[in-house]
Design a protein around this nucleic acid. Sequence first.
RNA 1: GCCCAAGUGGCGGAAUUGGUAGACGCACAGGACUUAAAAUCCUGCGCCCCUUAAAGGCGUGCCGGUUCGAUUCCGGCCUUGGGCACCA
Length: 803
Amino acid sequence: MDTKDRKYNFRQIEQKWRDNWEKAPINTDKTRPKFYCLDMFPYPSGSGLHVGHWRSYVISDVLARYKLLQGHYVIHPMGFDAFGLPAENYAIQNNVHPEAAVKESAKLFKRQLEDICAMYDWDMELSTTDPSFYKWTQWIFVQMFKKGLAYEKEMPLNWCPACKVVLANEEAAGGECERCGAPPEKKNLRQWMLKITEYGERLLVDLDKLKWPEKVKKMQADWIGKSYGAKIDFEIDGRDDNITVFTTRPDTLFGATFMVLAPEHALVKELTTSENLASVEKYIQDAGALSNVDRMAKKDKTGVFTGAYAINPLSGEKLEVWISDYVLADYGTGAIMCVPGHDERDFEFAKKFGLPILEVISLDGELHELEEAYTGDGVMVNSGEFNGLPAVDGKEAVAGHLAKLGIGEKTVNYKLRDWVFSRQRYWGEPIPLIHCDACGIVPVPEADLPVTLPHVDSYQPTDTGESPLALIDDWVNTTCPTCCKAAKRETNTMPQWAGSSWYFLRYVDVNNDAELISKEAMEKFLPVDYYVGGIEHAVLHLLYARFYTKFLYDIGVVNFEEPFTQLFNQGMVNRFGMKMAKSKGNGVSPDGLIDKYGRDALRLYILFLGPPELDVDWNDNGIEGVFRFLNKLWRLVAENVGKTVATTPELEQARHKMIHDISTRMENLTLNTVVSGFMEHTNKLTDMARSGGIDADTLRDMIILLAPYAPHIAAELWETCGYTTSVFDATWPTYDKEKMAESTITIVVQMNGKLRENIQMAAEATKEEVLAAAKASVAARLEGTIIVKEIFVPGKLVNFVVK
RNA sequence: GCCCAAGUGGCGGAAUUGGUAGACGCACAGGACUUAAAAUCCUGCGCCCCUUAAAGGCGUGCCGGUUCGAUUCCGGCCUUGGGCACCA
């Protein structure tokens, strides 16, 4: 140590241990029980890492190293999600080929990731753009195709005019392109879809198994959107076909006074009478031109009457059939029964167009003039034989009655739609299908995978809805694998989510060319135990990855149905009121801080900023305090090594308390309080060392506890203390509750709940002794009062209730 | 509109099961060491009353409740952030 400025030489120490660990890696014993601690892998951009990126990587690394010290073999890999629009857009902006840009960026990222000093196993490194990886991304698609889960469909889709690409529903949530924020347009396109809806129920039910933040589970459950109700057939007046509706309120069926179909509904053209045809056609045309955002933003309900009538199956009333864009074509049956008395939207529509409003649910059983839709509880009225029945029971009763009549049945509905899986961009995995005039659509044989992405100079996206790959004749033209005649390749590519939906399976068997993953590796190392990343993927990546895993389970590739047992979402790092990002000019580079305070100090400071799950505002000021702490701790060891004293009961008590505090806070992942705990205990131990000396056991355990957080200084101090094996080969110390108990405890004395005195008592003092001492301490105050009640909380406090 | 978080000193934040509110750190002020500075060490640091001290009072967004005792539990509100949003 340089005694002149009493600061430890972090530059020299950190370099020394970085070199050492490169030569002799830690965490190599694969015979230990595994713990798979995964970071959401980044897409490599050319702008590099800022301290916001560090946050999640430090959190997961602390956890990984903690598990290592607890005796696990820790799988802690890192890779690059390099296909997709972010990488392609970056390349276009900088006028380089995506392949070159990705290579360059990955190199920069890797160097910056190494600065964090996370114990990534770079032997497992993967990139989604590597043909040996996307061979299996394509293989999974082929399996889905063979199982009928991938299908082609022409339908109106969300098209982002800025990104020049279609969006999945998940990517267009909230009426904004998930990537660029532009409002998507509607465009009729032929696209490849994945039947994620077939897994909707399992994706919903299995959420219960997961140790995930409730918020994320709820977002997924809401996205899947299961609702219980009934399908009901309404006879069309004068025709022998029906309009089928889905409703969650069969109990209000008597109150259905009109019907509305989505403009796109198949029956609309057939039903419309000749005198209404012109207005209906105009309405359909106008509705079709509206984007989803405009459609949602409309303040007023609009609609037109078709001229047709349906019959309410219970009341027998004739109901006008209207069309309106407030009914969605792709949810339920695309048609609804309208109960204006008990549905706000139907009420608004009925008011505007003068349609009848009937009360059929009443809270008090009486009849009222409805000023607005009543959506609460009550009993059925105006409902014939069902009158007087509570609405909650009415749902079952009416649905059962309709089922007996053969015109309805109980059913469930989901908001989840199939996944639009093809993209009109160059930089993605080619979809491995071949279009043959004779054989139809044929998957590329597995032996011919991967279908490699051809290297071209012109990869700019087009407005046509076609991929740039369509322009490459010698790639598009091929032969049919079945009949050997001339055929054409599918030119769409996969979305950026394809690789990330399964990458976590591949790390542990990254070089396997014969299968996606060997059974042995799968059974030994999977699934992921702990997954750390941002909340922005709550319904995108995390839903897709669950879907893929369930599919791979079904075809026997993996033996588990959920990929990520536990999930942690770290909060964002903000600066100037917004998320830190290079593009916004508010990014803080770690480089200067590393140079001034070192990697260990920066790791600790990022944790110290605030609770890991909450957003924090960045400021540079506090890192000074963390740096002072590291120096203090350095001096504590340096000044006492070689002259440690024999363990005393006080030292043993302090040591067990320290292990307890750090361990429980680590387990709870309240990592900001772990750092303050280190400071607290270091301060205490420094005082104890000065007054009576410190023992070797305490120093040893303190260094082990610190190792996950500040690995370099811990390794150096460990060596200073004379240990010859790595600190990461040590075992996480355990504590004994009895040994951490203090011999003297502070008892709080209250009167009427207000603090009056603190008294020191021996830990083993009896209730009577404590009460007597407490009474004595407040004797003067008790004069002239009557003690009504004595509250005694063992080891904590005494409260006298007096009059 | 619906749902979910959060609200504590000048600042970031802490408080295990309802039991001393403000740990730890930053900033600030005073002191020691030093020719001086840096570094380090010591002391103080919620607000009010008071020359000071003692004693007292108030205090965890607001109003109320339960309790011997509430940052913690319950009811009602306010503010901020996030999610969903014509899903019948």
